[in-house]
């Protein structure tokens, strides 16, 4: 806040020489500011409306009955609010022969996301710790491969990974998918943790060494408690990323374990039957609700997470 006040003050000072040069008949600063303000806020409001529109349409569509959708337009608010599409999307929408709704996909996604998040963060934080505090010969080579690997399209590594998982008997299972998420989350998370641990004061590490603490002792008693914010950032990154994944879900699991995104796509894009747009939109909101909730709750930390995780693409 004080920073903002300071900026305002200096901006004011900067205007003085310009005003002197132009003389007293120069443009009135107030009018100038108000025109500019209108343009700035006008554009921002139009842009905000554009970004909000799809969310609005999703919500109103999901609350209408099918007859109303057929005659009305997508932007009009529902005349008669009904929650039936939501109930149907959750518990009885059909994918192929199964008619138990999105709930199955939801629980599958929970069962995929929770262990994947925990394991990938555990593995990557230990990697980052080893890379920043216990450098051994050759460690940087592996790390470089990892970072370069983050840019390789997943399609290139899909089939070899299928073979590896089939060989160890995990292809098609939830455990296999957890491993896949751990592998592909590793580059960005390792980078995140390595950089964070490297920014911590080295004296702490050295003092702990002198006191006789070992690799795991320092990690669990000093590094982890000191790095909670970065763990939260990593968690946000992984939870939303894994929840939103489609490709790995469809490649590495059997239909009974399909995550929510895959099931949603199957429900909406199924060719049989009459299209029920209200049910489809309710299902879409249900699938998007969890990452949106994470986003709105976490706020600035989410921004920090994606700025770090943007490399993941």
């Amino acid at each position: 806040m004080s920073d903002r006040g300071h900026l305002k003050k200096t901006a004011h000072l900067a205007e003085v020489p310009a005003a002197l040069e132009a003389g007293p008949r120069g443009a009135k600063p107030r009018r100038l500011v108000s025109t500019r303000t209108i343009v700035v806020y006008g554009t921002l409001f139009v842009a905000a409306a554009y970004y909000l529109l799809p969310l609005y349409v999703m919500i109103v569509t999901s609350l209408k009955g099918m007859p109303e959708i057929r005659v009305g337009n997508i932007f009009s608010p529902p005349l008669e609010i009904t929650f039936e599409p939501w109930v149907k999307a959750w518990s009885s929408a059909c994918t192929g022969l199964n008619c138990d709704g999105l709930s199955r996909g939801f629980w599958n996604s929970v069962m995929i996301t929770v262990p994947s998040t925990i394991i990938s963060i555990a593995v990557a934080s230990i990697n980052g710790y080893a890379l920043s505090n216990w450098r051994f010969k050759g460690a940087d080579i592996f790390f470089t491969i990892l970072i370069v690997g983050a840019f390789i399209p997943y399609q290139v590594m899909l089939y070899p990974l299928v073979i590896v998982l089939r060989e160890i008997g995990l292809y098609g299972s939830l455990a296999g998918l957890v491993i896949v998420h751990t592998i592909f989350g590793m580059p960005i998370l390792t980078l995140l943790f390595r950089n964070y641990f490297a920014s911590l004061p080295e004296e702490l590490f050295k003092a702990a060494r002198v006191d006789g603490a070992g690799f795991w002792g320092i990690f669990l008693k000093i590094m982890v408690p000191m790095s909670l914010p970065i763990f939260v950032v990593a968690m946000i990154l992984q939870v939303t990323g894994i929840w939103n994944d489609f490709l790995f879900g469809v490649v590495f699991t059997r239909p009974e374990y399909y995550p929510m995104t895959v099931q949603l796509n199957n429900i909406v894009n199924s060719v049989q039957g009459v299209k029920e747009y209200n049910v489809n939109m309710a299902a879409t909101i249900l699938t998007g609700a969890f990452p949106l909730l994470v986003y709105f709750v976490s706020g600035r930390l989410f921004v920090r997470g994606i700025a770090a995780g943007a490399v993941k693409g």
């Binding site: 970004y51 969310l55 939103n244 489609f246 995104t261 949603l264 699938t287 998007g288 990452p291 986003y295």
Partner: peptide, 10 residues
Amino acid sequence: LYPFALSFIV
């Protein structure tokens, strides 16, 4: 930024 939190499927 909120659309970025949504999956490509959604």
